[in-house]
Simulated assay, not measured.
Amino acid sequence: MKKFLNINDIEICIDDTEHGENSLLLIHGLTGNKTTMYPIRDMFKDDYRVITIDTRGHGESTRPKKYTIDDHAYDIHEIIKELSLENVNILGYSMGSYIALRTAEVKCDNIDNLILLCTKPHGKTSSVARLLKEADMDITKVTQEEMMGVILKASLAPQTYEKAINGELNVKELLKGDESQELSEEEKAAEDASLANFDNSKDYDKVTCRTLVIGAEYDGINPPELGREVADGIKDAEFELIKDAGHLVIVEQPDEFKDIVNNFLNQ
């Protein structure tokens, strides 16, 4: 069920399956929104109460002209409080993993398990912005389709990339994102600025919840060695590498991804 929550003086739009004893909160990646996390929601909705969110600046949530990764983290804690979630599990993907980790660094006592998918410890800008700059493209002006064209090769394992190029695999259809919620040039600039010089590596010691980091062998957006660096920095964190997959691991190896997450949450 779609809901709008008044969080920190803005509206945050969420989708809440509402059923399940244990909750799983999903945080989307760069330029994404709650709909881009529906493939993961659908994997776990039979066993968990799954909440997907539009982070501030995205989807149907309020789109401020300026915000930070810390703003996102405080929003997540307020969402947890507003929904009366106890011992919530949080899964963040790409940019969402940076937000999820910062959320745990702010406060961990209401987080049971933390899962960071395709993550990195810090960055001068977003990984996508870096790739676009290397391709001589402006992130504030590029369309979603142009962006996908630039990052596709960096996002997929070689064999999956060949299928996508040959038309054997429709990545866009599998991700099922809502194109009507695409960001404007100004909104993309605000999103990119929110990640400027972020550094989660300074507060690893504040993460006391169980943590799993998942990397993908051919991830050219956030290479797996960066995820392993995060796992090495957090006490007792686990690291899993998914072979034959890139940044779009949930499309390429959905069954292995689901098994890894389930095994971790059920320990």
Rank of each mutant, 00 (worst) to 15 (best):
M1N: 08
I7A: 01
N8V: 09
D9M: 11
E18D: 13
G20N: 01
L26I: 01
I27D: 00
H28W: 06
G29E: 08
K34G: 09
D42H: 11
M43N: 05
V50E: 02
T52L: 05
T55D: 08
G57D: 02
H58D: 00
P64V: 04
K66N: 15
H72I: 06
H72S: 11
Y74I: 14
D75R: 01
H77N: 02
K81D: 13
K81L: 12
L83A: 05
L83N: 12
E86R: 12
E86D: 13
I90S: 01
L91S: 06
L91M: 08
S94V: 09
M95V: 07
A100R: 00
L101N: 14
K107I: 07
D112G: 10
N113I: 03
L114S: 02
L114T: 01
C118K: 11
T119I: 07
P121L: 05
H122E: 14
K124I: 11
T125D: 12
R130C: 13
L131N: 09
L132N: 02
L132V: 07
K133M: 13
E134G: 09
D136F: 03
D138L: 06
I139R: 02
I139V: 15
Q144L: 14
M148Y: 06
G149V: 09
I151Q: 01
S155V: 08
K163C: 03
A164K: 00
N166F: 01
E168D: 12
V171W: 05
V171F: 04
K172S: 15
E173A: 14
G177R: 06
D178H: 01
S180K: 07
Q181T: 14
E182A: 15
K188T: 12
K188W: 10
F198R: 03
F198N: 07
D199G: 05
D199A: 04
S201E: 08
K202V: 14
K202W: 06
K202T: 15
V207P: 01
T208V: 07
C209S: 07
I214Q: 10
I214H: 01
D219C: 06
N222L: 04
E225N: 14
R228E: 15
E229Q: 14
E229T: 14
G233R: 09
K235E: 14
E238K: 13
D244L: 13
D244R: 11
A245H: 08
A245W: 03
H247M: 10
L248Q: 11
V249Q: 11
V251C: 08
V251T: 10
P254A: 00
D255R: 14
D255A: 13
N262I: 09
F264R: 04
L265R: 02
N266I: 15
